[in-house]
Structure formats: C-alpha cells, structure tokens
C-alpha cells in the first residue's frame, strides 16, 4: 500500500498551511504586504500541486502534471496581477 507518499503529502500540506498562517500574522507596510501576497499565492500553488500530484495521483503522468501546473500557475499569476491592480488603483 503506497501510504508513505500519502503521509509525506499530508505533512507537506500541514507545513505549507502553517507557513501561510505565519506569513499573515504580522501586520506590515504596503511593500511587505505585496511580498506577503505573492508568497501566500505561491504557497497556495504548492499546496494545490501536492493535492493534484499525490492525493489525485497525477504524479503518474508527466503530461498532465505539467498541464495542471501551467493552468494553476496561470490562474495564480492572473490573481496576483488583479491584486496588484487593486494596489495601484
């Protein structure tokens, strides 16, 4: 039973989730908040990748893992762009 990979995935997700929370604890200035937003979205992307790869089993297909990386990555870049648009508006 390939449970070691699943357990490693859960530990990784717990660490990434804790890191996300710690990043947002400190109130910060506008530049630091922009950095924090980028980091939070990056961590979200990493969490999504772990779920897709290990929980949903996409690690068995390089093509589909890359495709989902591109789609999720593109979504997060667009989200960050809209976040920045709000900053400069």
């Amino acid at each position: 039973m390939p449970t070691r990979g699943l357990s490693q995935a859960w530990v990784t997700l717990a660490i990434l989730s804790t890191a996300t929370t710690l990043l947002t604890v400190q109130p910060a200035g506008i530049e630091a908040r922009t950095f924090t937003a980028a980091a939070v979205l990056l961590l979200a992307g990493l969490k999504a990748r772990v779920i897709l790869s290990r929980y949903l089993g996409l690690h068995t297909s390089r093509f589909w893992m890359r495709t989902f990386d591109l789609v999720i990555g593109g979504f997060l870049i667009l989200a960050f762009g809209l976040y920045l648009a709000g900053r400069t508006a």
Partner: peptide, 15 residues
C-alpha cells in the same frame, strides 16, 4: 480540498 486551498488565501488573506 483543492478548491479550498485556492479559495482560502484569496478570500481571507490577500489584504
């Protein structure tokens, strides 16, 4: 699960 990890930071955290 996947939807939540994308939803949570955008709705709750991006400030």
């Amino acid at each position: 699960d996947l939807i939540w990890v994308l939803l949570f930071p955008i709705i709750y955290l991006l400030g």
